[in-house]
Design a protein around this nucleic acid. Structure first.
Lengths: 269, 269
DNA sequence: AACATCGGTTCAATATATGAACCACAATAG
DNA sequence: CTATTGTGGTTCATATATTGAACCGATGTT
């Protein structure tokens, strides 16, 4: 491992929960030699990546990261940084995939990608995704800000005969999303389309959008569902990472449980 | 110079104007060896500080900086990161100093610091600074968003007999701030106080606030004015840096000219 | 077909990173 | 009023990781 990598790794130990770290403390956390760590910190300090609290001598993140983040945010739009994982997802599942972002109480389509594998494809050609009827929408209601539930309740347009049109069925559906970590819209927007989705998180740590796969219903077997979920997880992690966020451990836990149970179902059936 | 420092220096070459840089190009810009630069970029890529545009192979800032910036923003408030330069300023000038931030059309006091050097001190004990009558306010009008001028015009309260109360005198005063790079409130808020200020900038590149020195009028000689301006510049650079910004070169130019002319005045008088 | 780029790789030479032991200081504890 | 234990910071011989000229294959230009 290069010394550059080692030095940069030190930065990963700073968080809102542990904003300031002393030299000795950091050595323990990172399991590193003190002299080396000290020199690494000095190099990071020169570059403005860390600074020392003058009163406590503890180190904390420096102002340079603000500048860099500004540049990154200004030059790499969310869409571009979601493109690659989206393509991989469509490729791996053989189904059409979407990335949506939440703005206010509206779920906007940010990017989509068709797989070339099958002749029939799910074409979702809309700008905004209904909260109650699409996998992305349900994911947003389940993991986004609370007022989204009200927004969803206030527009329960019926698209198919399985669209949740009552407040009770909507709440039950959202509840199951919160339990499994996946949004699931079973032919509730288009009669021939099964939607599965996973939440995305950005640098604020908040829900920022969703990644979804729209599968042609006739192909939607338990095996495909399992495959889609596996790749949704990969894509969600990657896009969240590109947006400066991480998947909360609670969600990771839901996914882990959700996948093992699906797997059981798959092997016992 | 350590290899860590050298690697981190590479990041300074990325900006909104030059968001993506190829390996060879970066070597020319940074005047570095190609093999070394390549390895440094690899280390930065592992840590997520840069990433490669898959299609062009060019490098750009990576998602990690977003996370770090989030943590920095959440854990180091503006006030804390302005404190030290503010103290140094008060110390160096022997006068009371303030940091103000702009929020909407209001200039709020963020922090202040008294010098212990003199028995008499300028005490500015307010939460919000009048736009037209204080050095910080004038600086905000001069370098902040345009609508501030309207806000200033709509409240021309007379505090002293030199307070600019007409739209014409206000505009003339602001004009001179734009010419010199320094806000100057000559006994226009308190009869015994001369105020000098300089603008502050944050990571968005926009005007974010002002740093000011309130000097007791009887002490306010051309020599002191020159000293205050010198140290205002230092403080403004430092606080802006701590907020993730830099002083625009136009302002730096104004200051340079402004200071040499003051110096001439000082030596010829 | 010759030439000039590009991103990426190799390997011997050596400059640079390393860490045990060492300060000086501050805050406890006995 | 010492010990003790913690801290941030420093030293220096050792050795390991960094370095850059030269090289490669690919792509594009003249």
């Amino acid at each position: 491992m290069s010394s550059v990598t080692k030095a940069l790794q030190l930065l990963t130990h700073f968080s809102t929960a542990r904003a300031e770290i002393g030299l000795s403390q950091l050595c323990r956390i990172a399991k590193r030699d003190k002299a080396t760590t000290y020199r690494h910190l000095q190099a990071l300090e020169i570059a403005g990546f860390v600074e020392q609290n003058p009163s406590t001598k503890q180190y904390r993140l420096g102002p340079t990261v603000l500048q860099l983040a500004q540049t990154r945010e200004a030059t790499v739009p969310r869409k571009a940084s979601a493109q690659r994982p989206l393509l991989d997802l469509a490729e791996a599942t053989g189904e059409t995939s979407h990335v949506t972002v939440l703005s206010g109480s509206t779920v906007y389509g940010l990017a989509s990608c068709d797989s070339q594998r099958h002749g029939t494809r799910a074409i979702i050609d809309i700008d905004t995704f209904p909260l109650h009827a699409t996998a992305s929408g349900l994911c947003s209601v389940a993991f986004g800000p609370e007022q989204l539930m009200d927004a969803a309740k206030s527009n329960l347009t019926q698209f198919t005969d399985t669209t949740p049109t009552s407040i009770d069925t909507l709440q039950a559906t959202v509840e199951s999303v919160r339990k499994t970590g996946f949004g699931h819209a079973s032919r509730s927007f288009e009669t021939e389309v099964e939607g599965l989705s996973a939440p995305l998180f950005d640098q604020t740590g908040q829900f920022a959008g969703a990644i979804s796969v729209a599968s042609v219903a006739t192909r939607f077997t338990p095996e495909l569902e399992h495959t889609i979920k596996e790749h949704l997880i990969i894509a969600a992690r990657e896009i969240s990472h590109n947006w400066g966020g991480i998947i909360p451990t609670t969600i990771e836990g839901l996914w882990a449980r959700s996948l093992t149970s699906t797997h059981k179902l798959e092997t016992t059936s």
